[in-house]
Design a protein around this nucleic acid. Structure first.
Lengths: 354, 354
DNA sequence: AAAGAAATTGGGAACGTTCCCAAGGGAACG
DNA sequence: CGTTCCCTTGGGAACGTTCCCAATTTCTTT
């Protein structure tokens, strides 16, 4: 029956794709049997199954997820809205999300808001129209009201932002704890003048700052607390570090709110003619790919990003399959990663301050 | 009728979402009128339109794209398969893709292959089942046969890889030209011993290499051509640069295949006790965010990534709406971006070699 | 060999839209 | 005032599946 060269009918885009009915006709069976065979339903005789598969292959049949979704009233799609794809931080979260979705039998559909809350809302609205079974919001800047509105339609999980909304799962790193880890490391090396560059409105910035303050007090360094305003960008870190170095007592260690700003700070320290870590120790937060570059080799706090994504996806799927289950808050433990930007302070300053 | 507090019926996930029929009943009109009003069809009286909109709002109605797609036999979705979300290079391409899709009335649905050709194929297959109207492949590593198979079902555009398949649009930066730009810059500064770190199998690596060779010959530096095998990773650049510096005549300038590997090379140069750009000039390719960091400040070749994305999306949509149109090759012009890692060679070496 | 049970098959309804066509109600026109 | 035409409306079919139920076939068992 089939030509020698091409196994599939050479469908050009215009011509309609074969349906289950075409396969049925070609296999000499009913559409019901074809449907069952395609889905792997055991209630099909071996011979029928074979005939169906052969016909499907021959025609180049591909299941139509649209029709299937319509009758099943679910899509097995989970939408993921990422506020910013430029932020490498989210790449690994997406990996985790993706892997977990595949493992649970769902597809992850990624949309982005390009750092614009309005665009994010539009993206959510579109995913809702597409009838995704659930949505994961990564680093969202949307208002609580909007999120709550979406949560009415479909289970939602958020990562990166810590909205406490009932019916919404939240997966966060324990930023407070991470900051404590950082300060314990620096204080343990003997530093006393430990300044922090703040992350402003950034995700987790407030927790990191209070972790810093708390750990400083715990180390009896409450008097040395010094928080320089900044943000989570490279230039924010640069400017903040310049101020730290130019005025007041010069810190022997700087804890930046994230890796980006730490890299900016690194540059400011170098420009001031100081060396890292000999003159100033420097820490970041997030353990992004940036921190791992040899040329930078930044001591930082690792967030289990992959796992964050996994857990978020699992949370959504759990609530898809178990409607009515309440949303939870999942807090993950950060980890210290020591690289080359931290060392004990110079003897002189150590003596002077001790 | 409606409670005071909540404008929308407080639908909890289990209860079915309202349909056009619910709206029709509530507005006292037929489903046809509702359908038309929702879609903005002018053939609806003002009073009906108002009634429909009010009822829709009241019920929290949201159009069901699944049902709509089934009957229209198109989804207005364009799938985007990104080989690697960690590669910041693609973030801007995605921006362009996304913006163009929105502007043309389509949605972009992003899927990823995690650098695994098998996973990429799976992603494509899933998008095809979802009946996306077209697909953009970004940095794909799939076999030509697989791509051709997908192209039979739906218009395809590729960015980053340069498969010449009929029925497939390709959008690429002119990598040959970019490499020429790099060498012209270095040669123009007075460098003669200009080595290149190759990108191996990476996208565009071959073109960049031949651009290098050609430009070297054009500058009468054919005898100085020296290509060190490498890849597009940081450690690849590091290892390659070590070899370049350890053996043979030491180059005064190194052109790395991309920014990542240039950063690795930067580290190797520093470790050898040499300074950039005083002792060795260094160039990358891509103008990623990495290159722009002050701490790195790499001279590099810029690819119009945003535009690459835009053009790819436009190409797919053009062929969706105009089936049978042939695929084209779109070549974009790269640009030199001078930062701090290039300068004229030291006098001494210049004299020696001149 | 008959009867009952089990396995397999087929047909119709449903999912929520859009599209097409027919019908109703004015307005305009002669 | 009757006819025609336009504007609006409503109902049924279709999109490609899955699900349910009834019908048929095949196997067991006595």
């Amino acid at each position: 029956m089939s030509r020698a060269r091409s196994r599939h009918a050479g469908a050009i885009h215009g011509s309609p794709a074969p349906t289950i009915i075409d396969v049925a006709r070609s296999a000499g069976l009913s559409k019901s049997v074809v449907s069952r065979a395609i889905r792997g339903d055991p209630a099909v005789s071996a011979s029928s199954r074979e005939a169906v598969m052969a016909a499907a292959e021959e025609l180049g049949y591909r299941a139509n997820a649209v029709a299937r979704s319509l009758v099943e009233r679910r899509t097995y799609n989970v939408g993921v809205v990422v506020s910013d794809l430029h932020n490498i931080f989210f790449a690994e979260v997406l990996d985790g999300l993706y892997a977990a979705a595949a493992q649970l039998g769902y597809r992850a559909l990624i949309a982005t808001g390009n750092r614009d809350p309005i665009a994010e809302e539009r993206a959510v609205e579109q995913l809702l129209e597409l009838r995704t079974d659930g949505i994961v919001l990564a680093g969202s800047r949307m208002s609580a009201a909007t999120v709550a509105g979406a949560a009415r339609a479909v289970p939602i999980a958020m990562v990166g932002s810590d909205l406490r909304l009932k019916g919404v799962d939240v997966v966060v790193d324990d930023d407070f704890r991470g900051a404590v880890l950082a300060i314990e490391h620096l204080a343990g090396l003997g530093h006393r003048e430990i300044a922090m560059i703040d992350g402003g409105q950034g995700a987790g910035a407030a927790e990191r700052r209070s972790g810093y303050e708390s750990a400083m007090r715990a180390a009896r360094l409450g008097a040395q607390v010094r928080v320089e305003p900044g943000d989570f960008t490279e230039s924010g870190g640069y400017e903040a570090a310049r101020k730290l170095l130019a005025t007041g007592r010069r810190p022997t260690a700087i804890f930046a709110g994230n890796d980006q700003s730490a890299v900016g700070a690194l540059n400011a320290v170098n420009e001031a003619g100081l060396r890292v870590p000999e003159d100033v120790s420097l820490m970041g937060y997030d353990n992004t790919a940036l921190a791992a570059l040899r040329h930078i080799s930044l001591t930082t706090i690792h967030q289990p990003r992959n796992q964050i994504g996994e857990i978020a996806m699992q949370a959504v799927v759990r609530r898809i399959e178990n409607p009515g289950a309440p949303g939870k808050r999942h807090v993950l433990a950060p980890m210290l990663v020591v690289r080359s930007t931290t060392s004990p302070p110079r003897k002189s300053s150590r003596l002077r301050s001790g």
